[in-house]
Design a protein around this nucleic acid. Sequence first.
DNA 1: GAAACGTCATCTTA
DNA 2: CTAAGATGACGTTT
Length: 696
Amino acid sequence: MDAPVLDVKPLRCLAPIFPGPFGYNAFPPSNSSPYASPFGAPPFTPMFTPVFPAAVSPISHTQSKQTPQVSNGAPTATGSVPESKSPAAPTADVCESPSPEKKESPIQPGPSVGKKRGSARKGKQTPEPGSSTMTPEPGSSTMTPKPGSSTMTPGMTESSQRGHKRRAYKKSSGSGTMLFGVEDGDREAVFRVLMTFDGLRRRILQIDDTKAATPGSSKRPDLKAGTLMMTNGYRTNSKKRVGVVPGIEIGDLFYFRFEMCLVGLHSQSMAGIDYMPVKFDKEEEQVALSIVSSGVYEDDDMGNPDILIYSGQGGHSTPGKQVNDQKLERGNLALQNSSSRANEIRVIRGMKDVTNPGCKIYMYDGLYKIQDSWIEKGKSGFSVFKYKLMRVQGQPEGIAVWKKTRQWKDNPSSRGFVILNDLSYGVEKLPVCVVNEVDTDKGPAHFSYVDTVLHQKTMKVSLGCKCYNSCSPSDVSCQCGKQNGDLPPYSSTGVLANQKPLVYECGSTCMCSQICRNRVSQKGTKIHFEVFKTKGKGWGLRSWGPIRAGSFICEYTGEIVDSVELDDENEANDYMFDPSNCERNFVEWNCNNELLVEQKPAEPEEEKSSLLSFGINANNNGNVSRFMNHSCSPNVFWQPVLYDHDDERYPHIMFFAMKHIPPMTELTYDYDFYKASERLTINQIRIDNSRPGFSV
DNA sequence: GAAACGTCATCTTA
DNA sequence: CTAAGATGACGTTT
């Protein structure tokens, strides 16, 4: 039970594992707080969420410190609402900022790879180029009530008029309790929570996959992962609040509703309207905090990115089918109150994922205010509440970025500042345009675009599997499956489950077809890239579309060289990918699998990645990867993959997304994993094999 | 009052 | 398409 807690770093949950009810692991009971020693803090009771050491958020200045009472953080004055000035603007530079202990400047060329040297930039980060104001002025539209619609007045229905007391935040019953609340997280904490959630979810999915034969046994890995996080209190911003949420920026993406719950953006796991009681003078009133517009109701964006027409909740028996009039209660009432109180409401827009239909992407679109509300008859003839929300001015672009990029995709010539239409000259399926919005540079120096690595010697080809059509994760006879260990590396949608020393994809000698789920990175990139001139870091790389965490981005192509040829002084090494200095290629991406008790052999792997002793020279031949800059707070990592030959000394270097990456966000990876690994503690945590385990 | 327990509304996800 | 989900809100009992 007393697994040693190793090298505790603030943002991580390092508590030893305790078996909880239902196979969940819980953190130790309150009287043995794991925090006592590491932080020198007194043990706290489960009553209070521990204050997170790094909790002083640089952006929480707009937000008064939340006390257990609701009173502040909420509007202080009657009627008038806190104008939190420039809500998200100051957060712009948080994105790439290193964790507090680090001294290096956020983004700079990696020490080991001399790429784009001399352009390191100190100090202040400049906002994205492109984020300059090109939003239309929507303010001109006057607030005339909708024709033919009755205006609502608060209190027009009976229900729920009793003054609600703010209840103490309900702690999960059971053994879990809120031991590890990460209160008022900063951006780093938000990332941590999200990465942990998704790591957990992918892991559960992966385990589920191998048990394909048991029908009905297990579904919804998202809910399982979310529940685990919740019961262990592994969340941040767990107190509700009006307005800006620390650590969350406009444009942030979410692929599950639960993700938004865990970081305090929208705490309803299903309902579209989140609200809480707020004190105005003497009265307490429910006001809306955030809404998710997900298209179940007949929401409409009117084509104007700053306006959202939102439908109230209720009246539906099955989703999509309205069978009753909506009532002015719950979320609808809260929205109505928010309309008169004019408080800011966070808006999350849900959209179809074009690359993965059936999947939804949620994007935080910033603060809005309700401008108008009315009742109208829905398609089914029942009453529906309608709310017209107007985006608060002065915020960075949100959904507008999406609209822009979508337009560019349809019509690439509408993209301005283009220097070159297709850097790949047709090699990539999608053109890679080169843009410069910041200076007069006419483009990067010439190189030949290749979409594969160039070997000097011929590589021998491995013997493949004999699966028919597609390899099945539950098929123990699959040769490729064996090589990968007991669990499949990719989900059925091609998302990498976790980082490994080496992934074995099926290859040309395999009998399975191209639809095999064990063929992912070999098929090449599906991302619509853009090479752009950064401010101060030379050329950079970004995507027009959103990228889901774990999905394949691209390969690092170029000429394979032996590491002995590497020489930092050589200019030719500017575009050298050098994995040899990476003691351990594990980022924190697999993190917190220890929330699951697994009967896996303890990681025997580690060694292989440090054996990599080649380099990839992209100076003369390369692809978009050579433009990816370094960051200590990266959103991309690399993963060795083997598929077309047998030689484990020369795997392909494939890049995958560490986090969900919004459109037009620069893609960066950590050039020097060795340093990164020093920040790691997660892999040092002992996994308790003796425990029965979380049954999935 | 506070805490514990019970039920309902919500609609997402596979 | 359908049904199983988890949470928080709200209501009732201890």
